[in-house]
Design a protein around this nucleic acid. Structure first.
Ligand code: MN
Ligand code: MN
Ligand code: ZN
Ligand code: ZN
Lengths: 149, 149
DNA sequence: ATGATAATGAAAACCGTTATCAATAATAAT
DNA sequence: ATTATTATTGATAACGGTTTTCATTATCAT
C-alpha cells in the first residue's frame, strides 16, 4: 500500500485531517525528484488549485516534515527546500550542488563504504562528546558542466 | 608572518582599504573558536567600537568571505554564521550540531580515512556528473548531553 | 596637505517566513 | 442526511535577517 491511501492513513492516525492542499502538495513532491522551495510549490499548484494560499503551503510543508513524509533542506541560499521522503530506507542519499546555478543532484555512490565510515564517526563522536546522533548531512560543492564554461 | 599585518597585506593587494571595522572583526573572529552570527559580532564589538553599524558588519563579513579569510556557514536556523579561516590546511574540520540548542562542535576525527573516501567520491562524482568539485560539507546532527535530559 | 574615492552608518526596502483572525471545510455525533 | 465541533484555510499584517540607498566620513595616492 503506497501513495495517497498510505498518506491519508498516516495523517489521520496522528489526528490531522486529509485535505485538498495536503494531498496536492504530497502528489506534487512525490512525482518530482526536484528539491522545491515553498514558492515553487505554490507556483506549480496555482494552476490546478487557484484558491491555494502561500501561507497554507508553508504550513503544510512544515506539517509533512513533522509527519516524516518530507525532508526539509537548507542550502545557503536563503529559502528552504523540500524533497519527498520515500519510505524505502534504500533511498538515503547525499547532495552534489552547483555553487553558481544552484543545481542539486542526488547521489548514492559509495554508500557502503560511506555508511561504514559514518558509523565509525558517529560512535566516536557519541563517545567523545556525549551526543546522541540522529542524522548526518553530506554535500559536495562545485561547478556543473554548464557553469564551468 | 601572521595576523594583522598579513590580513592588511591581503586586503590591500585586492584593492580594499584597511579600516578599523575590518581589523576589529578579523581580530574578534581570529580569537574565538565560536561560529558567530552577524548580530553576535555586532554585539561583541559594540563596547569597544560604539560607532560601528550592523550594516558594516554584514558588509565586512561578506568581504572577508570573498577574500578567503572567513568561512560562511548555514545551518538551518535562519541566520548565517561565520568562522575564521586559518591559512593552515590542517585545520579543515567538520561539524557536530545539537538539533535542540544549536551548539556547534568542530571535530577532526578520522580525517585520514575520511579524506580518502572524500577523494574517491569526488573523483566519481566529477566523472559521472561532469562537476568540478571545490569543497564539501559534512555535519552530524544530534542531541548534546545537556539537551538529552 | 589635498583630492579622489572607497567605506561607513542610519534609514528604508527587501525577502522568506510566521502570527493573527474571521471564514470555511473535514470529521464526528446525531 | 443533518448538525455540531473544531481543525484548516487564506488574506493580511508582522517579523527577523539581510541588502539597498545615499549623504557623510575615512583611507590612501599624490
Ligand atoms: Mn535530495
Ligand atoms: Mn567550524
Ligand atoms: Zn551550475
Ligand atoms: Zn543541546
Amino acid at each position: 500500500m503506497r501513495g495517497p491511501g498510505q498518506w491519508q492513513h498516516r495523517l489521520r492516525r496522528q489526528g490531522a485531517r486529509w485535505t485538498v492542499p495536503r494531498r496536492a502538495i504530497l502528489e506534487l513532491l512525490s512525482r518530482t525528484s526536484k528539491h522545491l522551495s515553498a514558492k515553487e510549490v505554490y507556483g506549480s499548484l496555482h494552476r490546478t488549485n487557484p484558491g491555494l494560499g502561500l501561507t497554507t503551503v508553508y504550513r503544510t510543508l512544515d506539517l509533512l516534515v513533522r509527519m516524516g513524509l518530507l525532508n526539509k533542506l537548507s542550502f545557503g541560499s536563503g529559502e528552504s527546500r523540500y524533497e519527498f521522503r520515500s519510505t524505502d530506507e534504500e533511498t538515503h542519499h547525499h547532495h552534489l550542488i552547483c555553487m553558481q546555478c544552484g543545481k542539486i543532484i542526488d547521489y548514492t555512490d559509495f554508500v557502503d563504504e560511506e555508511q561504514e565510515l559514518v558509523k565509525k564517526i558517529e560512535d566516536s563522536l557519541a563517545k567523545k562528546h556525549g551526543f546522541k546522533i540522529n542524522d548526518h548531512h553530506i554535500e559536495f560543492l562545485g561547478l556543473c558542466p554548464e557553469c564551468r564554461g
